[in-house]
């Protein structure tokens, strides 16, 4: 793809994203602003999972554990320290807590591979789920409502449009950073590990450390997505870390494009739009989702993002 064409696409997408709240206001469909925020937050979660699955070949079925833990950082702080409500403090804390959690969990999980890795990540997520289900001071399995959104200096975060712009800025920054990471030395090593880990090991790469760093970064970003989602919904519950949430994130990654930078975004958009449109017709809308997923797996293994990428030579 020619460089200018790619940049043109980016500009169009960015302009559309910036104009979205205005258009929604004119059309009298303000609902779509918070819908777009939700898409972007899911896109961040799916992109962080894509770093693991698509770039590093580590198929995790427990990624929602960090999503939920990030949300609970926001919720627990709102209970314990109602005064300290600055997002500048709480969001970085959610990132740090989840980086630490992911580092510790990854250090255990990454000693396994393949199906065992899938199972052990799932097991950790289920442990999280049951721990938070029984944490009655923080709502137990009923979850916890937040009184208000966190604040940012100079912005009215209660407004859905403002919050959308904040989420958009965070997502754009994260995606840019992931793009740099993908093309960096670290990203190449990760791709090499996905391709042939034994060979990378015999070339002198300590593959475990590279995978652990990737797992930590992915966990931290998922935690950030969770913190944003807590603010978006004004509500957290253990369901955010249940295994079907991990499964949805994985479906988004496969739908959008394993290993491609825009895969998480494309998958989250397609999934949530499908859900939005189809669930109006039937509660069994996932039947259609299943068919779409089958089609992608068989006819577009590189996902939706792969359809837009340049043809391989």
């Amino acid at each position: 793809m020619a460089g200018w064409r790619r940049h043109a696409w980016l500009l169009v997408a960015l302009a559309a994203a910036l104009a979205l709240p205005k258009i929604a206001a004119i059309a009298g469909q303000d609902f779509y602003v918070s819908f777009a925020s939700r898409v972007l937050i899911w896109a961040l979660l799916a992109s962080s999972l894509n770093l693991l699955v698509g770039m590093g070949g580590m198929v995790s079925l427990g990624h929602a554990a960090f999503f939920g833990a990030g949300a609970y950082v926001v919720a627990i702080l709102s209970v314990e320290a109602p005064g300290g409500s600055s997002a500048l403090l709480v969001w970085p804390l959610a990132v740090a807590v989840n980086a630490l959690l992911a580092f510790l969990i990854g250090a255990i999980c990454l000693r396994t591979r393949g199906v065992y890795f899938i199972m052990i990540t799932l097991a950790f997520a289920q442990m999280f789920f049951y721990i938070f289900t029984s944490l009655t001071p923080y709502g137990g399995d009923d979850g916890l409502s937040l009184a208000r959104r966190l604040t940012l200096p100079g912005l009215d975060m209660a407004g859905d449009a403002t919050f959308y712009y904040v989420v958009l800025a965070i997502f754009a920054a994260c995606l840019f950073a992931l793009g740099r990471l993908k093309a960096s030395r670290f990203g190449r090593v990760l791709a090499g590990i996905k391709d042939n880990e034994a060979r990378m090991e015999s070339l002198g790469y300590a593959t475990f450390r590279f995978k652990l760093v990737a797992y930590t970064v992915a966990g931290a970003l998922a935690g950030l997505a969770g913190a944003l989602m807590a603010n978006q919904n004004g509500f957290v519950s253990p369901n955010m870390m249940s295994w079907d949430q991990s499964g949805i994130a994985l479906v988004m990654v496969i739908l959008g494009g394993l290993g491609s930078l825009w895969g998480g975004f494309a998958g989250a958009t397609a999934f949530l739009v499908l859900e939005e449109v189809l669930s109006g017709f039937s509660a069994h809308w996932q039947i259609v989702l299943g068919l779409v997923l089958l089609g992608v797996v068989f006819y577009a293994p590189l996902g939706i993002a792969g359809l837009f990428a340049r043809k391989p030579r």
Partner: peptide, 18 residues
């Protein structure tokens, strides 16, 4: 290039394009 990279300094570099 990836084999050469293995013996050319740290690969924990996350920002500069290879």
């Amino acid at each position: 290039a990836l084999a050469v990279q293995a013996v050319s300094g740290s690969s924990f570099r996350f920002w500069q394009a290879v």
